[in-house]
């Protein structure tokens, strides 16, 4: 019992550290990917291949002068970035980072907690995340910040609905809200149980989900809340030093977490093809599965960057039209068709 408790504590710290590490190196990867796409070299001064660049950036942000506008509400001004960072880090607890390891007859599950409402927990945390932007933007007492905050809240609420509908089809197919059970449902092998990844059954859900994920993360082409050509810096115009750093950093954590969720829901999570036919030890398969999950996550992080440097930013009315008139009816149609098919095959 005690060993499980210690293991959970280690796992919590590990997930926290990995989230921060992935976010830090996403900033480096973003600049390298951008450089690659635009035929440049990118950061290469700090360390070999510029690998120490995230550390240098972090140090720079910490050393900058901290400015709090005298007309703003100081408590809320500080609360905004903290809240955004906390909600970004909270989602990692329900994601299954791997199957279970067995040492000395004790089973250690590579998931911090498997609550029976896993997906809804993720949605709850995501829907609270917008307060970080709204409170920060309002407390800045700046018109551009306020406009950015208002855009962010309207955008996130609009896209949450289509996102929710695209998940309901998965819940209907698997009959569970737990992310662990959804992963198990996609576990594949030759003998007896052939299970495809959910993206094979639900390609439209995946498409809608990933578009909504871009909008929820405020990533290009939907980064309207911080659109620099219209709003100076958007909701973080007045923020400086590490408070700005927290906003920028939390965005990359959100990207990492949403890549993890996309991989878990639609691309088999920690499962990889033929994993039960290799005849390997269960512990080794678990470790290979975790590596497979991280490969998928890194691919989706690259996908986020790929889109950012390929597609120009939407106009705000185009964004709203796409959300309400495009994705929402499509997701409802997908839901109805899925329901009809499940009813027909009596699955």
């Amino acid at each position: 019992m005690m060993s499980i408790f210690i293991f959970k504590v280690i796992l919590v710290v590990a997930v926290f550290a990995i989230s921060l590490f992935m976010a830090a190196y996403s900033t480096y990867a973003e600049r390298k990917v951008a450089a690659f796409m635009q035929d440049r070299i990118g950061p290469d001064r700090a360390g070999p291949f510029g690998l120490l660049q995230p550390l240098a950036d972090g140090l720079k942000l910490f050393m900058k002068e901290e400015i709090i506008p005298s007309v703003s509400n100081k408590f809320l001004f500080v609360l905004g970035p903290c809240l955004f960072m906390i909600t970004a880090l909270m989602t990692g607890v329900v994601i299954p980072w791997g199957d279970s390891l067995t040492f000395g007859g004790v089973e250690y599950k590579l998931q911090i907690t498997d609550i029976n409402i896993g997906i809804l927990y993720v949605f709850g945390v995501v829907s609270i995340g917008v307060y970080g932007i709204m409170i920060g933007g309002w407390a800045s007492n700046n018109k551009f910040s306020l406009l950015g905050a208002i855009r962010a809240s309207a955008q996130m609420i609009s896209y949450e609905i289509a996102m929710g509908f695209s998940i309901i089809t998965l819940v209907m197919m698997t009959g569970t809200l737990s992310l662990k059970e959804i992963s198990v449902f996609q576990s594949g092998g030759i003998d007896g149980h052939w299970n495809f990844w959910n993206v094979v059954y639900q390609p439209f859900s995946f498409l809608i989900f990933i578009i909504c994920a871009f909008a929820e993360c405020n990533r290009a082409p939907f980064d309207l809340p911080e659109c620099e050509t219209e709003l100076v810096g958007g909701y973080h115009t007045e923020f400086s030093s590490m408070k700005l750093g927290l906003y920028l950093f939390a965005e990359y954590i959100n990207m990492f977490i949403s890549s993890a969720i996309i991989s878990t829901l639609f691309f088999g999570g920690y499962n990889f093809p033929f994993m039960h036919d290799l005849g390997l030890d269960a512990n080794i398969i678990t470790i290979l599965g975790t590596i497979a999950l991280f490969t998928k996550i890194i691919f989706f992080i690259f996908f986020f960057m790929w889109i950012r440097w390929t597609i120009p930013r939407f106009r705000y009315d185009q964004l709203m039209n796409l959300g309400w008139k495009g994705l929402l009816p499509l997701s409802i149609l997908n839901l109805v068709i899925t329901g009809a098919v499940i009813l027909y095959f009596n699955k």
Partner: peptide, 11 residues
């Protein structure tokens, strides 16, 4: 409530 309705209130 906290994620949708209050965001609109705040908005």
């Amino acid at each position: 409530y906290a994620g949708a309705i209050m965001v609109l209130f705040l908005y």
